[in-house]
Structures are given as structure tokens and as C-alpha cells.
Design a protein around this nucleic acid. Sequence first.
DNA 1: TATTTTATTGCAACATTGTTGCATTTATTG
DNA 2: CAATAAATGCAACAATGTTGCAATAAAATA
Lengths: 135, 135
Amino acid sequence: MRNLLKDKKLSETPFRKEVLEVFGNYSNAISMSVIEKGLKDYNRITLYRTIKIFLEKGLIHEIALSGEPSNYALCDSTCSSELHQHQHVHFKCTLCETVTCVEVAEFPSLHLPNYQIEQLEIQASGICKVCLKKE
Amino acid sequence: MRNLLKDKKLSETPFRKEVLEVFGNYSNAISMSVIEKGLKDYNRITLYRTIKIFLEKGLIHEIALSGEPSNYALCDSTCSSELHQHQHVHFKCTLCETVTCVEVAEFPSLHLPNYQIEQLEIQASGICKVCLKKE
DNA sequence: TATTTTATTGCAACATTGTTGCATTTATTG
DNA sequence: CAATAAATGCAACAATGTTGCAATAAAATA
Ligand SMILES: [Mn+2]
Ligand SMILES: [Mn+2]
Ligand SMILES: [Zn+2]
Ligand SMILES: [Zn+2]
């Protein structure tokens, strides 16, 4: 297993490791409140600063949602301070409410006349594979 | 010109009209702070409630952005309390920072194995047509 | 149009979320 | 292990969002 903190040149502190563990406990993206519940004990300010620096250094990425708090998920190794490059779709299930990063065979492309597109972000919603099976 | 308030069965108040006027003054999506600057005088709480009910009734839609406040834009007439249905792309310019709703000839489609997609939301970023011309 | 009914507004008070300066503690470097 | 650099926790604050309730304004009714 990769050492995310060392890779991104961040000091290894017990708290940062614990936050990363929380992310590791989920296969989906998680909100701030889920992170908080997953921590034994925490200082609110330190947590904010931790999330902020994880975002900046490309350890995690933010998934902004309309009408509700953002979710966060681990990036893959290609992300850095310079560029978050994701070729995956963010899927929000309308039943179980989970947000998942879904890898996709061929990422859609788009051409807009008169616009120069540098990045595409796709958010899909509907029913996730877990909920589909339950039906 | 359509009467948005009556159409969506909302009381016509001077304040709501003024907020709609602010939206009308822009061809792009705007943030809460831009709305506030566009109003002569306003009560913070009333403004929140106004935005909230405009969202609920489908007069406006929210564009959630990572790391910065949401933007809002007028919906087209097809939107209602039940369903916001947009076949457009949200474009954020990395130069002028504006967020625009861009109509697109053919909206991309996506298939995810094991997922049932009900809605797609696409956010593109890059250089907008205004900034491209200036270069 | 006058009256009744219903909805909106503004105030006060509060809750949540996010930020900053600074001293203390901890991790990293050599 | 000592020196240095970085992270943490506290206090204080700022910004954002919410709720109950009385006053006011809009809509519906007669
Ligand atoms: Mn993702
Ligand atoms: Mn739009
Ligand atoms: Zn689900
Ligand atoms: Zn631009």
C-alpha cells in the first residue's frame, strides 16, 4: 500500500493518518460529517486544515452537490497540486444517497463552438448498483 | 415577457420582482454576493427564503462549484417543482471566472454498466467565448 | 371595492460552517 | 540528539444559514 502522505510531501501525523483511514473505510465519497463520525476524537479546526491541504496536494477531491454539503473522495495517484485529473463520473444514488466515483470505459467528450474546453466534470444521478440489486 | 412568479404560483411581491430583475441583468449565472450587490436594499433572511423558494419552484437552478460558493441561474420554462430538466452544460471560465449555461446541440449520453442513470449534469471549464475573442 | 384569508417579510435569536493569529507541541532534517 | 520546520489546539471572530413569531402585504372572496 502506497504512503499517500509521503508521496505528496506532507508530514505524517497521527491525525492525518487517521483521516486517511476513514477514507479507506469507504468505497464511496463521504461528507464532512461522515468523516467526523469516523474519527475517534478531533479538533474541528485541524480537521478543516487537513481537508484543505489534502485537497491542495491532490490526495482527495471535492464533489460539490447542489443543496447539500460537498463530498470528498481519495484521488488516484495521478492527481497533484497542479492538476486534478479524473476520468471518472460522480454518481449520486437517489435511493441510498451515496456518492460514488465510477470509472468509465470511455469518458464522454464534448465540443462547444466558441468555447475552449479544458476539463469536463460529469455528475450522474439515478440508482446505484447496490440499490439495483436490492430491488 | 412571461410572468415567472404567476406561472409558478408565487405571490408577486416587489422584492421577488427585484430579485428576478437582477437575474435578468445577467446572461450568465450569478453568485449570492452578486445578487446582493444588485439589490437596492434587502433583508438577508428574506433573500435566503426567496432563493430557496425560487429553487423549489423551478424558477432558478443552483450550480454547485468545488471550493467556491454556488451560482444561480434562471431556469427555462420546462422546469417545475417536480423536475429540473436542463439539456445544457455549465461552463466555468478559468480566466474571467464567469459561469454560463451553454445550450448544446446534442447533449452527451452515458451508459454505466449496473447503474441506472436518470439525470446527467455536465460542468466544463476552460476559456469562454468572450475571453477567447480578447486573446 | 371592502373584507377575509393566506402568504411574505423583518426582527431577534440561534446554529452551523469556515477562518485567522499565536503559542505550544510534534515531526522532520542533518 | 539538537536544530529547524511544520502541525496542532485554543481563542476569537466572520460568514452563512435557520427558526419562531408578530407585523405587514398580497390574494381570494364576497
Ligand atoms: Mn471522484
Ligand atoms: Mn444552467
Ligand atoms: Zn444506492
Ligand atoms: Zn471568460
